[in-house]
Design a protein around this nucleic acid. Structure first.
Lengths: 112, 112
DNA sequence: TTTCGTTATATCCAATCAAATATAGCGATT
DNA sequence: AATCGCTATATTTGATTGGATATAACGAAA
């Protein structure tokens, strides 16, 4: 019996998704590359999709998650704020706790 | 701050989804109506979609989840097995525990 | 043997979603 | 002023999804 239990968590604010796994992954890629377009490339998604994801985050967040610079040396870029970084940490921590919790729950169900 | 944390859980067997919220909802509707087509109507989804969902469950389950009868008085029908009913109960129980767990977790994060 | 409502399945069409492409603006550096 | 890589956005194309529709088989009961 190789049952596995999986989960996805996300955070809603006023009924709309504010943060989920895809957005957290994007924020991490932005943190690593310093640019939205580079983050999209490393994630192998279109710039458009990445831009929409980030746009949704910034539109629903009450504090800025990223700061951008357009033009200039290197063309500009996007960086995470301290708040943005804390979101990543808190989300991933909660996600891992959820997984472990569910693994324990599954152990308790031998009747499957 | 009216953040809400949401989650979806599902069970995989050999890497493919075996049971999720949509499938459980369908199984419950079948249990209530005694027929796949009636279940589809009450859920306001097409028979095709309902059939594919149930087909996926029965193809991946190691024990029969439903028993069907074709023809006869009333045209036939689909009923849950004891195993099928136990799946519903266990899944929903685990789902609710997960929600409560996450609510507690969110309480612990005041930094958001 | 005719009827009935169901299961089962194929086909066509509409809608939705995502990828690809194109274009414009930005501003520090050169 | 020219360049460069990035942000920003619209449009078009392609793929996938799901709905609607049609048809057949089934078997107990009338």
């Amino acid at each position: 019996m190789n049952y596995k239990i999986k989960s996805r968590i996300w955070i809603e604010l006023d009924g709309e998704e504010f943060l989920g796994e895809g957005k957290v992954k994007l924020l991490k890629a932005i943190d690593n590359t310093g640019s939205l377009s580079k983050a999209a490339k490393t994630m192998k998604i279109s710039y458009k999709k990445a831009w929409h994801l980030l746009d949704a985050v910034n539109n629903s967040a009450k504090k800025p998650v990223t700061v951008k610079s357009i033009g200039g040396k290197g063309g500009g870029g996007t960086k995470l704020t301290v708040y943005g970084k804390s979101l990543i940490v808190n989300f991933e921590e909660m996600n891992e706790k959820c997984w472990k919790f569910l693994d324990v729950q599954l152990e308790n169900i031998k009747s499957l």
